[in-house]
Structure formats: C-alpha cells, structure tokens
Measured scan of single mutants.
Amino acid sequence: MSIQHFRVALIPFFAAFCLPVFAHPETLVKVKDAEDQLGARVGYIELDLNSGKILESFRPEERFPMMSTFKVLLCGAVLSRVDAGQEQLGRRIHYSQNDLVEYSPVTEKHLTDGMTVRELCSAAITMSDNTAANLLLTTIGGPKELTAFLHNMGDHVTRLDRWEPELNEAIPNDERDTTMPAAMATTLRKLLTGELLTLASRQQLIDWMEADKVAGPLLRSALPAGWFIADKSGAGERGSRGIIAALGPDGKPSRIVVIYTTGSQATMDERNRQIAEIGASLIKHW
C-alpha cells in the first residue's frame, strides 16, 4: 500500500482519535458579512469528516447552483462504474471539434489522439474542462443518470439537468442544476469515506481534487503551510461562485467545507476574496 493510499485508508482512524471539535460562531459572522459585502445569498456548511456531524452552517438547506462543483460527483459516478466493471479508466475516447464547448483548455489539445477516461476526469476536476465533463456525462448516460446515481446514494436534493455550459445559467428560483450545502457536503463525505467506492477509487477521487489547479484564489489562499486540501470550485452566471473541499491540518483532511453564493453584482475577484476570507476565519478558529 502506498503512503497516499495509507493516508486515505486511515482518515477515519486518525479522526477518531482527534480531540473533540467545537464550532466557532466567528466564522458564521464572516459568512454573514460576506453576504453584506456581496449583496447576495451565501450558503455555508462545515462537517466533521469522521462523524458527519454538522459543526457550523448557514442557509444549509437553500438551493444554490452547483456550477462546476458537480464534476466531482460526476467522476465519482464514473469511478463507481469502474468498480462495477462497467468502465475502464484506460479506455480512450475520441471526439471532434464539434464536441468542444466553451472553456476546454485540455480537451482542445487532444482532438487528434483523444483522451482516456482517467485523463478526462483529471481534466474535468483539476482544470474544470467543460468538454471533458460533457464527454464523461455521455459515458454514464447524461445528466439524468448522474441525478439517479445521487438518488441511489441517498441524495434526493442534488440534481443535474443540463450539460456544460448551460448548467451554469443560475436563474433565480430555478431548481435545475442545483444542490443544497448540506446535501453536497453529505454526498461528498460519502464519496470520500464511505463504502460506495473502493479504496482505490476513493484515493483516485481525492487525488484529482488535491491536484486542483484553478481554485488557488479561494480556500487555498488562506491555508497555512502543512495543511491538506482537496477541492473543486465552480463559477456561473449572475454572480455565482462555489467551492467544495476536504481539508485539515497535519497533512490530512478532517472536515468537509461547502460554500456557495449566487445573485451578486460583485466582480469575480471580490467573490473570490470573500470566500478566501471565510476560509481564513475557519482556519483561525479551527
């Protein structure tokens, strides 16, 4: 067993022997301040990774656009098919120029040779490549099948209805392509620590998230040296922004954090800054 596999296998073990965790309302004060600064709703939840206990939450059962955070769930569904012998990570998928959609920095470079399922998941999570996500959605049967996968996990809230990039439209009061912070946090925890996926697939999923290259201005910008984070960000229309993450000190994750916002007129930089400040408060009061 590799060191990384050992780390993920012992996530519940280490967490069980940690000192009790206590909620700190100071972080919620910052979440509410972010709402004021952005002029928009902000949803927040913080779960203990081992027990699933909610440590703090704000608007945990209000719907927010998922945006690209759905790509972690998508690759979880792909990995479940791999575990069941219905898919192979090494299978190569070929596609054409007509398949390319807006923001496809990886797939646009491989029109000639195609990409493997493993490479597509890596591109979808680490670079948020939209064509990679659409190609992977095709392998599982489309958005409705991802929703069905989530329902089978016990998540009857999260739903995907459309493809990239239309799913980022974020129309107010439109339930399409949305989740709730509580539902997303619980589902992410199941994917990373539950028995739904094999140990190898859980490790692969967290490795992809740990290698995320496009979430630097968010929670990662607030992390002290030595902290662990595996995350996936999302951005959408109407001032929408979000991030889902597993993080913790001492090089291992111990909490799940989900943050979503929508309806702001603020710039992307300002949305990023507010999420980073929430992260800084979380870490300060850990």
Rank of each mutant, 00 (worst) to 15 (best):
H24C: 09
T27Y: 02
L28Q: 10
A34L: 08
A34G: 07
D36H: 14
L38H: 07
V42I: 10
G43V: 03
L47Y: 07
G52T: 06
E62L: 06
R63W: 05
F64Y: 06
A77P: 04
V78C: 06
V78H: 04
D83I: 04
G85R: 11
Q86G: 15
Q86E: 14
R91Y: 05
R91F: 04
I93Y: 07
Y95R: 00
Y95V: 08
Y95G: 04
V101G: 07
S104E: 02
P105R: 06
V106G: 07
K109S: 13
T116N: 09
V117C: 05
R118N: 15
L120W: 00
A123Y: 02
A124I: 03
D129R: 00
A132C: 01
N134L: 00
N134W: 01
L135V: 12
L137I: 10
L137A: 06
L137M: 11
L137H: 01
I140C: 07
G141N: 08
G141F: 05
P143T: 07
K144G: 12
E145F: 11
F149E: 07
F149G: 05
N152Y: 12
M153V: 11
R159W: 06
L160P: 04
L160W: 01
D161C: 05
D161L: 00
R162L: 04
L167A: 08
P172F: 10
D174V: 03
D177R: 01
D177K: 02
T178F: 02
A183H: 12
M184V: 09
T186F: 15
L188H: 04
L196W: 14
Q203L: 10
L205T: 02
W208P: 00
A211V: 08
G216D: 07
R220H: 06
S221D: 09
P224W: 03
P224R: 06
I229H: 00
I229M: 08
G239T: 03
R241I: 03
I244T: 08
A245C: 12
K252Y: 11
P253G: 09
S254M: 11
R255L: 06
I256W: 03
I259K: 03
T262I: 09
G263N: 11
G263M: 08
S264E: 06
D269R: 11
D269W: 10
R273L: 11
Q274W: 13
A276W: 08
E277F: 08
I278Y: 03
G279K: 03
S281I: 15
S281V: 13
K284H: 14
H285A: 09
